[in-house]
């Protein structure tokens, strides 16, 4: 199954190697990894997605915690959360066939962020399937994709949880049920509309 781990790690040289090395040792491929500064000074936050057996989650989380530079680990599992990815896609386009791409971009709620005589650049955030949808449509059309740059997934739990609160609740074991009329969900749904 697909596992998503969110970890706070010390912002120091070599820390990423230690995290990556753990997965290398287990012979687990990292599907995506995003790292950046967090709200906690001196700590980076990372989201790591990997494919591993269902039972592996506990051991990976426990092993991540054993790394000295890892401060906090949340195994998101099936918990209600928001996941986003950012993609930059450069497409070959001339002034003649641009308008078609403009339409697509509109439908996918993406943005054009660069326009050159021979190409344009699309920026898009969303769930993985949405980004893949756009790439697929572009591939199926006349347009030629020149470059794709994807950030990998970033995940954050819904609601007021911080990982610290979660730990007090029993570290990811106890999940709050998703409430149907949670406004956050409504936003999520509309934002994640799949193009037909």
């Amino acid at each position: 199954m697909l596992h998503t781990f969110v970890a706070y790690v010390e912002d120091l040289p070599g820390v990423l190697t230690r995290v990556a090395s753990l997965f290398r040792r287990l012979n687990i491929n990292i599907n995506s990894l995003t790292v950046g500064r967090s709200e906690r000074p001196g700590l980076s936050r990372l989201t790591l997605v990997c494919e591993a057996s269902a039972e592996a989650g506990h051991r990976i989380q426990a092993s991540l915690f054993k790394l000295e530079n890892v401060v906090d680990v949340d195994d998101i599992a099936q918990a209600p959360s928001v996941t986003r990815e950012l993609a930059l896609i450069k497409v070959a386009a001339t002034p003649q066939n641009r308008s078609q791409i403009f339409e697509l971009v509109e439908v996918f709620r993406a943005r054009i962020v660069d326009l050159a005589p021979e190409s344009l650049m699309i920026e898009m955030t969303g769930v993985e399937s949405k980004i893949e949808g756009l790439i697929q449509v572009l591939n199926e059309g006349e347009e030629r994709i020149l470059e794709i740059c994807r950030s990998g997934k970033m995940t954050m739990r819904r609601g007021h949880h911080t990982s610290r609160v979660l730990r007090a609740m029993g570290a990811g074991a106890a999940e709050r049920p998703v409430s149907e009329d949670d406004p956050a969900n409504a936003v999520e749904e509309s934002a994640d509309i799949e193009p037909a």
Partner: peptide, 8 residues
């Protein structure tokens, strides 16, 4: 003492 050993 090592949680990573549980159910390994």
């Amino acid at each position: 003492v090592d949680p990573a050993e549980i159910n390994k």
